[in-house]
């Protein structure tokens, strides 16, 4: 029984970390109508920034905060200086631009951090195990679950209960109407991009003691986040949450029962959803053409 609980908790923590990245992407997709192909690079940026600050100061939490802020500022710069001038162009231009930013960042990582594996240990204060029905479970994973759920609740609150959340929802529903009402939609777009990037950088930073990163390799996060978005419904935050939990749980229990093929699970789920409900589990049906 305890091993099932163990598997459930690892699935939950992985799923919630996927959610942070996928939610960041979903906010950008829904607000700006563009898939940010540089999202994986921003996630790596979060990991690397956290690592450097953690190394320099000895404080993991300072590292996490620095990753969120610096990546957010960079995200702001990208949207203001690069994306804004091409808002009127077809979405393909913006998509290519985000891809270019991603490549640029990858090269910067090599230049700044060198070609190596970056990893760090769990901060001492979180580095212990708790007994779960007889099996020791690392507290850091429980910490990840708590942090992710708090962020999820905050996002829900901001989106549903605050004025800025209302504007975000209005932009997602009808951007032109919001523009007509005198709200600076472009500024709001930048804000959504910053929030999306910061969430991804946060996921990257929190992942530092678990997976670390290889500076020369492309971040595998992008693929999983895309799978989560497609399963849940592109541009749907609720969908990202559900998709992330499905991917996390299926991968976790899949490794237990089909260990040879567990890594195929996200792709299989994605294909399955595309065949049965192409708009995603929480996506709204749109009439093409």
């Amino acid at each position: 029984m305890s091993i099932y609980l163990y598997q459930f908790l690892t699935g939950l923590s992985s799923g919630l970390l996927y959610f942070l990245t996928a939610a960041g992407m979903a906010i950008i997709v829904s607000g700006l109508n563009v898939i940010n192909f540089g999202q994986g690079a921003f996630c790596m940026f979060g990991t690397l920034l956290c690592y450097s600050v953690y190394e320099a100061t000895g404080s993991f939490f300072l590292g996490v905060a620095a990753a969120v802020v610096v990546a957010g500022v960079l995200g702001g710069y990208v949207t203001e200086a690069m994306l804004r001038p091409i808002y009127k162009r077809p979405p393909l231009f913006q998509l290519l631009l985000t891809m270019g930013v991603g490549y640029l960042l990858q090269d910067f990582f090599l230049f700044a951090w060198g070609n190596r594996m970056i990893s760090a240990s769990v901060p001492e204060i979180l580095n212990f195990r708790v007994n779960l029905l007889g099996l020791p479970f690392p507290f850091y994973y429980i910490f990840l679950i708590i942090i992710s759920l708090i962020i999820c609740a905050v996002m829900l609150f901001v989106f549903k209960k605050t004025k800025i959340g209302m504007i975000f929802r209005a932009i997602i529903t009808n951007r032109d109407m919001v523009d007509c009402m005198g709200i600076n939609v472009k500024k709001m777009n930048s804000l959504m991009f910053i929030v999306g990037i910061s969430l991804t950088a946060l996921a990257g930073a929190l992942n530092l003691p678990i997976t670390g990163t290889q500076t020369a390799a492309e971040s595998p996060v992008l693929f999983t986040a895309m799978a989560v978005l497609i399963i849940g419904g592109i541009g749907e935050i609720k969908g990202a949450f559900i998709g992330a939990l499905i991917v996390g749980m299926c991968t976790s229990f899949g490794a237990m029962f089909f260990s040879q093929y567990y890594s195929l699970i996200p792709s299989l789920l994605m294909v399955l959803v595309l065949l049965i409900k192409p708009e995603g589990l929480c996506g709204k049906k749109t009439n093409a053409g």
Binding site: Y6, Q7, T10, P220
Partner: peptide, 16 residues
């Protein structure tokens, strides 16, 4: 496959 970085699921399956 070589691209996986989060191996927690594999680890728990070994433990079980």
């Amino acid at each position: 496959s070589g691209t996986e970085t989060d191996l927690t699921s594999v680890i728990t399956s070994i433990m079980s």
